[in-house]
Write a protein that binds this DNA or RNA. Structure first.
Lengths: 240, 240
DNA sequence: AGGCGTCTGTTCGCTAGCGAACACAGTGGG
DNA sequence: CCCACTGTGTTCGCTAGCGAACAGACGCCT
């Protein structure tokens, strides 16, 4: 389990026993995921799964009227395309690149082949899926009960956990789409955080200055997802 | 795949190939699930899974301050306790009986044993899990964007699909807990539906008079979940 | 029959978030 | 170097939903 950043690390891949990973390796192809790229649309038959290394992908649902809401986030701790092995082949969500970067791409069939060997890969994928489920459930709760202020904190922390460094490139407009709220609401919330000295904001560039404070201002949802993910996937490095 | 109602039908069990079901049968025990019974609490190590026949179980998250929100619903189309085979053994949700009835109970270990044979059961469970995921994702969206009126319609339809007949026993207080809103909000919404002649309400007893109208008044979320479930689990009978 | 507890309906003021509109400031391309 | 565009800040009125408090109504139990 090397932590060489240059090699592009995905922790799910890294957690596989060597023989399994070596079987997959020849079929892994590194691809660039530019900001805004749609990896799949609702109903698309998935041909590949993606293991992000330094990219972040959001799964979001787009309503008939065009409004959207993020369901969950995937970074180097996971993979995009669980429908491939869950059996549905497609989902009702859209997967969009939220932060540009690289990912390992694997043909769905290769994953299924390995899946059918019923080894460590299956167990790992299922556990990962359960952690995704936790994230979705918590998103539902958060959408119901928490203020935009709190949700912004949660969202920043989720993103931060999937990046190196303490900066993220993300306009308020984009964040608003993810959270499913108005851009003005995000401007408000971000303004408050900036005045508190928790973040520094400037034209699509956010620097987090005080992570502990951010965690305090966030709703409980972040901590729930984090600790549950940690429980399910203990091999994941934990940022603080 | 008998449809004898007296025998207590769970469609997930019914969809299993005969040999698989016959292996499970000796370990299935019919249990009564009274209204309000808590099947498991967050963090509980699950010992059994439950296949409801005429009971309905809600998975809901209870926040630190006691407020709650429903994550998804399970009736005779599914099972309670996916964490058993997903590998986490527990979840961060609570499972509560929303409508009293019977269920088949199976020791978790028996399910895992069968799971490890990597046959039809595994595939079916994964597909069912994906349909649950769809429901959760849609709940998140719905919580963000739709009015209590619309959500009540969605919720009534989800419950109706899991019951026989067109009546449900459910106080407004209870519904409010599920939706994560105030009881007064539900009173309002239910009052409107009653004035429209869509439902008849009286002290915890609801009769649905005009299902098509209910579907029209509901947000798109119900239809999305329904059609996706149908796609993933085509053996399920479809109510109209 | 009486009484009590549960369920439903209604009120009031309040706030968060919405929709629309507009002003201003960086920034990058011609 | 200037212009156009993109990103951010701010305003106004409006509505949905909240919190609290209370009134009636039904039904069960004694």
């Amino acid at each position: 389990m090397s932590h060489d950043p240059a090699s592009g690390q995905n922790h799910l891949l890294a957690a596989l026993p060597d023989p399994v990973r070596e079987r997959l390796l020849p079929h892994l192809e590194q691809v660039a995921l530019p900001l805004g790229k749609v990896i799949y649309e609702p109903g698309d038959r998935l041909t590949h799964v993606y293991f992000p290394t330094d990219a972040i992908v959001s799964l979001l649902y787009v309503m008939e009227n065009g409004a959207s809401a993020e369901i969950c986030v995937v970074g180097n701790e996971g993979l995009v395309g669980i429908a491939v092995f869950m059996g549905g082949e497609s989902t009702s969500n859209r997967a969009v690149v939220q932060s540009a970067g690289l990912a390992w791409r694997l043909p769905g069939q290769r994953l299924k082949d390995e899946f059918d060997r019923h080894g460590e890969l299956l167990l790992l994928m299922l556990r990962y899926t359960q952690s995704l489920i936790t994230q979705m459930a918590q998103t539902a709760v958060c959408n119901r009960h928490h203020s935009i202020d709190q949700q912004l904190c949660r969202w920043l922390l989720l993103s931060l956990d999937r990046l190196t460094g303490n900066e993220l490139n993300m306009t308020q407009e984009l964040i608003a789409n993810m959270l499913g709220v108005r851009r003005e609401g995000v401007t408000d919330a971000a303004g408050k955080l900036q005045r508190l000295g928790v973040i520094e904001y400037s034209r699509g560039h956010i620097k987090v200055l005080d992570r502990p404070q951010l965690e305090r201002l966030s709703c409980e949802c972040y901590a729930v997802v984090r600790s549950e993910t940690q429980r399910l996937l203990p091999y994941l490095p934990l940022r603080t």
